[in-house]
Amino acid sequence: MAQKAAKSLAVRNASRLKQTHLITLAVNTIFLFLRFTFRRSLSLKRYILLSIPALAIEFYLDRAAQPSYKSDGTLRSAGEDLDAKGLTEFMWDVLYWTWINVILVIILGNRAWWLYLVVPGYAIYAAVGTASGLKGMLGGMAGGGGEAVDGAPQSQSKRQAKMEKKGGQRMAYR
């Protein structure tokens, strides 16, 4: 049963990688064709600089998700799942946004390169959201005594208040 899931993942990965490579080839070919024929004003330096991350991500995804086979033709490894959450999902977002951005540059001109700032802006937004979530999650573990970090008293549970009233927690030795 596990081999069936691995074969299914390998087929899905191979199909998605082929589609990704074709879209990248089409978008980049159209840009370069238009740049060298009709729209000479399109910035080639910005295109190269801002396409390098997407090409590196595509190369990484291709290497990580490419299925590998044994010499007899049986599946050795299906590769990484391209639908995984987290970093893989963010890499797909960068790749998609690069394609969209190159198309917008073809349509709108060089000023559309500024839209590429959405990628680092989103990364910062996601990092701040994660950090504040971790801060909130770890905030309850940090405090020990009666006052919080900002000087305001922390509320105690009824059990803690009773224990403090009786003289604190006592250790029993056996």
Rank of each mutant, 00 (worst) to 15 (best):
T98S: 00
G73T: 11
P120K: 11
M1R: 13
G168E: 08
F90Q: 05
F90H: 03
L61Y: 00
A54Q: 04
Y122Q: 02
P67Y: 12
K166L: 13
S43I: 09
G168D: 03
Q160G: 07
G79D: 01
L17S: 04
S157F: 07
D72V: 09
D83A: 05
Q160F: 08
G143Y: 00
A142C: 03
N110R: 12
L42H: 03
G129Q: 11
K158P: 13
I124P: 09
S132A: 14
I103N: 07
V149P: 02
I106L: 11
A161C: 12
K166W: 13
Q160D: 08
A56Q: 07
R46F: 02
W114E: 14
A65C: 01
K18V: 10
V102D: 00
L55D: 01
G121H: 01
A64H: 12
Q156P: 15
L108D: 04
A54T: 08
P67L: 13
G73D: 11
I106M: 07
S8I: 14
L42F: 05
L22Y: 06
W113D: 09
F31V: 14
Q19I: 12
V105D: 00
L44S: 12
G139I: 15
V27P: 01
N13K: 01
Q19G: 10
L87Y: 11
R46C: 03
Q169E: 07
A26L: 03
K166S: 04
G151N: 11
V102Y: 01
Q156V: 09
A148C: 15
Q160E: 12
L49T: 06
G145Q: 02
S132E: 13
V128A: 08
L32K: 10
K165Q: 15
G146F: 02
M1F: 03
A148E: 13
E89R: 05
M171G: 13
M141I: 06
V128D: 15
M1T: 14
W99D: 15
N13Q: 05
Y125M: 14
G167N: 11
L44W: 01
W97S: 03
T88H: 01
A112E: 02
S155A: 04
S132Y: 06
Y47P: 03
Y60V: 10
T20Q: 13
D83R: 13
K85Q: 10
L32I: 10
I48G: 13
K85E: 15
D150Q: 06
T24E: 08
L49G: 05
G79L: 02
S71E: 15
T29L: 10
G140Q: 00
I52F: 02
K18R: 15
A112T: 11
S8P: 04
G146C: 00
G143D: 05
G139E: 05
I124H: 05
W99Q: 04
E58F: 05
K166F: 10
F59S: 02
A152I: 04
S43R: 04
L104C: 14
F59L: 01
T20M: 02
T88N: 14
E58L: 10
V102A: 03
A14T: 11
L50R: 12
K166D: 13
G143C: 06
P153W: 03
D72T: 15
S15H: 07
G140Y: 01
L17A: 05
Y96D: 01
A10W: 03
S71G: 06
G145W: 00
K85C: 09
A84L: 14
L134G: 04
R40H: 11
L42R: 01
R35A: 10
V102C: 01
Q160V: 08
A123Y: 06
A161V: 12
A172V: 08
L108Y: 07
W92T: 02
T29W: 11
